[in-house]
């Protein structure tokens, strides 16, 4: 564990908590893509199956359980409890366009052709693009609430911090996982446009709105 990885995990945890609190406190999931949240639930479920087969540390297991539980809690709030506030009309990204190529890639490019390993690889590839329905929704409506942009910033920072972690681990531990690194770079690049808007607008107290 190094400082970048810890900071990344904290940013990730913060993102998940911000989202749950936003929905719970406002009693509304307006502006949040249910499709992205569904993809994240699939990501955590397929990646953390190793909870049952492989013990790393208490920290690792607790975080995995928290991420799985939080993703299902978010889905419950969006699709059941506050269903009436879910903005279907703007959440139209076709997720099969992500799921099909990601499945194919996981079957072709993996560390080992075994069920758990392919599911892990699938989850890494899917995570890298799972935010697209949310970013698509923001671009479609042309704006996002400040709390939603804080959520997106925390979630995007997490993988960017992991990139620093991987650079650190490469130099100091000789650890290198090309699958995670390439997917992590793709994931971080997808947020770049948002990061720019966040820094130039939201941090200066303005609402995140896109030019028409």
């Amino acid at each position: 564990m190094n400082i970048f990885r810890l900071a990344g995990d904290i940013a990730h945890l913060l993102a998940v908590i911000i989202l749950l609190l936003k929905i719970w406190k406002s009693r509304s999931c307006a502006g949040i893509s249910g499709r992205s949240q569904l993809l994240f639930a699939i990501v955590y479920t397929t990646r953390y199956l190793d909870l049952l087969t492989n013990f790393v540390s208490i920290y690792n297991s607790v975080m995995k359980v928290v991420f799985i539980a939080a993703s299902y809690a978010t889905l419950y709030l969006m699709y059941m409890k506050f269903k009436a506030t879910y903005d279907h009309n703007h959440d139209t990204f076709r997720i099969e366009f992500l799921l099909i190529p990601v499945t194919a890639l996981a079957l072709l490019v993996n560390h080992e052709f075994s069920v758990l390993e392919i599911l892990w690889t699938f989850s890494i590839y899917l995570e890298s693009v799972a935010i697209l329905p949310q970013l698509f929704m923001v671009s479609k409506t042309g704006e996002a609430e400040s709390i939603t942009s804080h959520y997106l910033f925390a979630l995007g920072s997490y993988r960017a911090l992991y990139l620093l972690n991987w650079i650190y681990r490469y130099y100091f531990e000789g650890f290198f996982d090309p699958i995670a690194v390439v997917a992590g770079v793709v994931q971080t690049v997808l947020y770049c446009d948002f990061f720019y808007l966040y820094i130039t607008k939201v941090l200066k107290g303005k609402k995140l709105s896109l030019p028409a």
Binding site: R5, N54, N60, L116, P178, A180
Partner: peptide, 10 residues
């Protein structure tokens, strides 16, 4: 610990 079947990250 070179990736294979042992993923210690989240």
């Amino acid at each position: 610990k070179e990736g294979n079947n042992f993923h210690d990250e989240l």
